[in-house]
């Protein structure tokens, strides 16, 4: 479902939001608003106490959500409702430890049964063949990341054990807004595309309308996280302001 949706989308800008921020009800409302606004898919981040791939904004958001009482059990209660309320695919982004603690296989099944289409795990083990086989038999997409430092042989191996789309990390570094589109990005995306038919979406550091337009000339989609999540914190009307920020990016 994710692959087709991104292929068929004219302007695939995928929003990332932190679950449970400021509340589960707000996350549900925001998912519906973003879907109405034209998001082709939505990435829902499970907050983690030690998010080592994330910059200050998502670190802070994760902490706020956890401090507000986020729990996996409550998330599972809401996930089904969220998936049922929109016609676009939802993707879950989680560090691996919550899966390890709950059992990787049973948790992936639970996420799938809630209606979620794919998962992104930024700290998969270096050889995640087992988890790929598991996700395949469960029927949930395992979206893999390719970094600017990833060598061609490794890219080839990654795209063979990847479904949904390939997540091309734009920069060496953690998540968070950057001022420029990195020089080597276009080449990286083209290299990935030469090895797979899967769509390639670019994430990390993207926060500007003009960057999105530039990236969409060579990539199939863009993921925007920190720029939106910032609006979920310390604003008077988080759902409205986050959705408006998303609308500004795509119009």
């Amino acid at each position: 479902m994710i692959t087709e949706t991104i292929r068929n989308s004219k302007k695939a800008v995928i929003p990332y939001i932190t679950a449970g921020l400021p509340s589960f009800e707000d996350t549900g409302a925001l998912i519906r608003a973003l879907a109405d606004a034209g998001a082709p898919a939505i990435e829902i981040g499970i907050p983690f106490s030690d998010p080592m791939a994330d910059g200050p904004v998502i670190q802070k958001a994760s902490k706020m959500s956890l401090d507000a009482g986020f729990s996996l059990d409550e998330l599972f209660l809401h996930l089904r409702e969220w998936c049922g309320s929109v016609s676009i695919p939802l993707i879950v982004m989680t560090y691996i430890n919550p899966l390890v603690r709950r059992g990787i296989e049973e948790t992936l099944i639970r996420i799938k049964e809630s209606g979620v289409s794919g998962v992104i795990i930024p700290d998969l083990p270096s050889d995640p063949a087992d988890i790929f086989e598991m996700s395949k038999s469960i029927g949930i997409d395992l979206i893999r990341l390719v970094a600017p430092t990833t060598k061609p042989e490794r890219i080839k191996d990654i795209v063979e054990k990847c479904t949904g789309f390939v997540y091309s990390v734009s920069i060496k570094g953690v998540t968070g807004s950057r001022e420029i589109v990195p020089q080597g990005l276009k080449k990286q995306v083209q290299l990935i595309k030469s090895m797979t038919d899967l769509p390639v979406c670019v994430g990390f550091g993207v926060s500007k309308k003009e960057h999105i337009e530039e990236i969409l000339k060579f990539a199939d989609g863009v993921i925007v996280g920190s720029y939106l999540v910032e609006k979920l914190m310390d604003t008077a009307n988080p759902v409205k302001e986050t959705n408006e920020a998303f609308l500004r990016l795509i119009k």
């Binding site: 080592m52 998969l124 050889d127 970094a147 430092t149 990833t150 490794r154 060496k172």
Partner: peptide
Amino acid sequence: MKGYFGEFGGQYVPETLLPALE
């Protein structure tokens, strides 16, 4: 498996770091 002590160990890192570990 490389870098494991039984089930413990391994390399659970952002993809960016894997070449550096190699």
